[in-house]
Computed example of a mutant assay.
Amino acid sequence: MKIRKYESKDFQAALEYCLPPQQALYTSMPVEVLKTFQCDIFNQPFVVYADQQLVGWFALYTDGSGNIYTNNKQAILLKSFSIDARFQKMGFALDSLKLLPNIVKQQYKDKNEIILTVHDTNNAAISLYRKAGFIHKGENYDGEYGIELIFHMSL
């Protein structure tokens, strides 16, 4: 498995990315993330590849002053994490989350924490993030679509 920053050669695979509607409620599709990136350079898209197939996608929001979930200016925000429906239940989600701390340390040396939010009704994601080492410290955010739990991982 390889995780790296999005490159233009990934665009076609991003267009073909599949998520069932019940999962798409909780995240952004890759094309939506790319539109955001074009307007906000701090919203850096990443791709997860296995055997030359795009299996996963996420973005890291790198501007500490724009992170509404924490006062920690050295925190980085994990956004729009997903695994393509055709590659789910193969371990890619947990494996990629376990690689994430090293990627952040290599790419963003000034960061000391990863923050993410997850809707309180998304039990599968909550379980996954806990297995990967993220901790919910009791902080929540009243988001546009309901309560979001704020998870932390120290680096």
Score class of each variant (00 low, 15 high):
Lys79Val: 08
Asp51Val: 03
Gly56Asn: 01
Lys73Gln: 13
Val33Asp: 08
Ile3Met: 09
His152Tyr: 11
Gly138Ile: 07
Asp120Phe: 14
Asp84Leu: 09
Ile76Trp: 00
Asn72Met: 05
Ser28Ala: 14
Ala125Ile: 09
Thr117Gly: 15
Ile3Lys: 06
Gly138Val: 08
Lys105Leu: 13
Phe46Ser: 03
Ile135Arg: 11
Glu144Thr: 14
Gln23Gly: 01
Leu15Met: 10
Tyr141Cys: 04
Trp57Glu: 06
Phe42Trp: 13
Arg130Cys: 10
Asn71Glu: 10
Lys2His: 10
Asn122Pro: 01
Lys89His: 15
Thr117Asn: 14
Gly133Phe: 09
Glu32Thr: 11
Gln12Ile: 12
Ile76His: 00
Thr36Gly: 05
Ser28Tyr: 14
Lys109Gly: 03
Ala24Thr: 12
Asn123Trp: 13
Asp10Leu: 03
Phe134Lys: 03
Gly138Asp: 09
Asp95Trp: 08
Tyr129Val: 09
Phe151Asp: 03
Asp120Ile: 14
Tyr61Pro: 02
Leu149Gln: 15
Glu113Asp: 12
Glu148Ser: 07
Trp57Asn: 06
Leu54Met: 11
Asp110Val: 09
Lys2Ala: 07
Lys131Val: 12
Lys137Cys: 07
Leu25Phe: 15
Phe87Val: 09
Asp142Ala: 15
Phe87Thr: 07
Lys89Trp: 12
Leu54Val: 06
Leu100Ser: 09
Phe81Ile: 02
Gly133Leu: 09
Ala59Gly: 03
Phe81Ser: 00
Ile115Val: 09
Gln38Arg: 05
Lys35Ile: 00
Val48Cys: 03
Glu16Ile: 03
Met153Glu: 08
Pro101Ala: 04
Gln23Pro: 00
Gln53Met: 02
Leu78Ala: 01
Asn122Tyr: 11
Ser154Pro: 07
Glu7Met: 11
Gly146Asn: 01
Gly133Val: 11
Leu34Gly: 01
Glu7Gln: 13
Lys98Cys: 12
Tyr61Leu: 11
Asn123Val: 15
Glu144Trp: 14
Gln23Cys: 04
Phe87Arg: 07
Ser127Tyr: 13
Asp40His: 10
His136Tyr: 07
Ser154Trp: 11
Gln106Glu: 14
Asn102Ile: 02
Gln52Glu: 15
Ile115Cys: 03
Val118Tyr: 05
Tyr26Lys: 11
Leu77His: 03
Leu94Phe: 02
Gly66Asn: 12
Tyr145Phe: 13
Lys35Phe: 00
Ala75Cys: 06
Asp51Cys: 00
Phe58Cys: 00
Asn122Gln: 07
Gln44Gly: 01
His119Val: 05
Gln107Val: 08
Tyr145Leu: 12
Gly143Lys: 06
Trp57Cys: 04
Lys131Pro: 12
Leu54His: 02
Asp84Gly: 09
Thr62Cys: 07
Asn67Ser: 02
Ile83Arg: 03
Thr62Trp: 04
Pro101Asp: 04
Leu77Glu: 01
Asp120Pro: 10
Met153Gly: 04
Ile68Arg: 15
Gln88Glu: 01
